[in-house]
């Protein structure tokens, strides 16, 4: 069957996030105060044909490590589900 997969890729802790830094500076300029610890990321949604949940997750995790993220600077959160 088809399993819905969500992969969320973010920069690892300690890796500078220039996009987040720019957004965090822009928000107060628009009057939105109090924002801190902002991080950006990228979400991938897809369906994966697999025999069961465990094998779907295993294959999605392998995809996340091989292509969807660069493990040198990014980490990937892989789960079953939809947004």
């Amino acid at each position: 069957m088809n399993y819905p997969i969500l992969v969320h890729v973010t920069l690892r802790a300690g890796i500078a996030d220039p996009e987040a830094a720019t957004i965090e500076r822009a928000l107060p300029a628009l009057g939105f105060s109090g924002v801190s610890h902002l991080r950006t990321g990228k979400t991938f949604r897809f369906e994966l044909a697999a025999s069961d949940e465990a094998s779907a997750l295993e294959r999605a995790t392998a995809m996340a490590e091989r292509l969807l993220s660069n493990p040198v600077i990014e980490s990937a959160d892989v789960r079953l589900g939809t947004l």
Binding site: L11, I15, A16, P18, E19, A21, T22, N70, V72, I73
Partner: peptide, 11 residues
């Protein structure tokens, strides 16, 4: 080569 290239500071 080690490391990675990411977006420029200041975008």
């Amino acid at each position: 080569l080690p490391g990675a290239l990411q977006k420029n500071r200041g975008l």
